[in-house]
């Protein structure tokens, strides 16, 4: 029964949005992936060589000559993480701050539900949504790998990439959730999520091109997510643990702040 507790209720309420995001993200991923056969033509290689290297790097287009390089750049390197981040930030914001600003949180918390329990169950529902999107995208890629000719990437590579993508989404959801839970303000949570996404992206792809700023990459969630090519070399423990640790820390801090403050009217 989907109306049993705040966890299942959140999934129930998010069902349409989750379906929409899943379809969109899988469709974009599948579309880009199916371009791969055409990317292998000599004309395309020449065309890509005409672009300045810095520009390609800014778009995470590092290596377009192998299937893994192309997927890691065009699919998992740019559009997909950005879409997942937007989805995660929106869902994380909605979990507490969105509900509070809509004036609908009072009623639930006037019921016998603890704030810690409510916050954690709602984040768990957000997490389920993010994992679902990442897994379905991964399955679509595995299904396409035969027809599109993704040579050199095994199911293990896709599994590792899927894990990294899910952790990446969780970290952004946790950020928006934590800021929203601590402040109760929707706009602040969205701004924090969007701000970190933009700065994190630049820190991974643009700042390192400047001499003396290469360290910036190390503190970017995009680097924790993409660094070390999980698609080829499997799960990268440092990156994965940094994403997971950040998520845990943010969820704990946000929930703690939420239990201590006044609810907004």
């Amino acid at each position: 029964m989907l109306l049993r507790d705040p966890f299942t209720k959140s999934l129930h309420d998010a069902r349409r949005s989750l379906l929409g995001w899943t379809v969109a993200i899988v469709a974009v991923g599948a579309m880009y992936a199916s371009f791969w056969p055409t990317m292998q033509s000599p004309e395309m290689t020449k065309a890509m060589q005409a672009y300045p290297e810095g520009l390609l790097e800014a778009f995470n287009y590092s290596d377009l000559t192998s299937a893994a390089g192309y997927l890691g750049s065009a699919v998992y390197g740019l559009l997909i993480p950005l879409l997942v981040a937007v989805f995660a930030i929106a869902a994380g914001t909605r979990a507490v701050a969105g509900d509070e600003e809509a004036g609908t949180l009072d009623l639930v918390l006037a019921h016998p539900v603890g704030r810690t329990r409510l916050a954690l169950l709602r984040f768990a529902a957000v997490a389920v949504g993010i994992v679902t999107v990442a897994v379905l995208l991964g399955l679509a890629m595995v299904a396409l790998s035969g027809p599109a000719g993704f040579d050199g990437i095994g199911v293990g590579g896709f599994a590792a990439m899927t894990l990294h993508l899910a952790l990446f989404g969780l970290a952004f959801a946790a950020l928006a959730f934590a800021v929203g839970a601590a402040t109760g303000r929707r706009a602040v949570a969205l701004a924090a999520g969007a701000g970190v996404a933009v700065v994190g992206y630049l820190a991974n792809s643009v700042f390192p091109q400047v001499e003396g700023l290469t360290w910036a990459r190390e503190i970017s969630p995009f680097h924790w997510y993409l660094g070390g090519s999980p698609l080829v070399d499997g799960v990268q423990p440092v990156g994965a643990l940094l994403l997971l640790g950040t998520t845990a820390l943010l969820v704990a801090a946000g929930t703690a702040a939420f239990t201590r403050r006044d609810l907004a009217v």
Binding site: L3, R4, D13, L107, P112
Partner: peptide
């Protein structure tokens, strides 16, 4: 405790029965 606010605001996309079932479940 039973609580009723003067401006009873809830997510309008659900039916009254869905909401009341959920709130009842929160109370066991």
């Amino acid at each position: 405790i039973g609580y009723l606010a003067g401006d009873f605001v809830v997510d309008g996309r659900q039916t009254a029965r869905e909401l009341l079932t959920y709130l009842g479940n929160l109370r066991g």
